[in-house]
Amino acid sequence: MIFVTLVRQLLDRPATNPFPTRHMPRSIIRLLERARRGKGAIHPPVPVPAGMRGKLVYDRDKCIGCQLCVRVCPARVIEFRSEQKKIRMHVARCTFCSQCVDACPVAALATSREFLLADTDRRSRNLIVE
């Protein structure tokens, strides 16, 4: 019977993952900045599993400039800079398939578990990996 479930859920804790704060702050950027400096607690983000495909990590020194990653990337995230023979990745476009990681012959690319990538500027420092 659904009513048993209703009573149980009424007494249980809600299943919702809470927002970082209870109410909309005046400035989200300032809130996150304060939280980073340890002032003011926010509800932490849900834990992510070990193998999660998050923001790409690039080892510039290992890169040999073979452009294989550029060829396989479905979202055209990767820009090849021919003068340096290195790449620059625009994470704002990334679909997190990590095909470039599989393709890289020298293991210069990897995925991290970082996933808080929302930004108002697609060219911000946080969203460009090079």
């Binding site: 479930t5 299943a15 992510v48 599993p49 193998g51 999660m52 495909r53 679909t95 997190f96 398939c97 990590s98 095909q99 995925t111």
Partner: peptide
């Protein structure tokens, strides 16, 4: 709300197995 609450378990499992919650690649 009940079905979507219990659905989260398999979504979490898929994320754990594949690395992505949707679009498992």
């Amino acid at each position: 709300h009940l079905t979507w609450k219990v659905r989260e378990k398999v979504m979490d499992l898929l994320e754990d197995l594949t690395g992505n919650r949707v679009d498992y690649a």
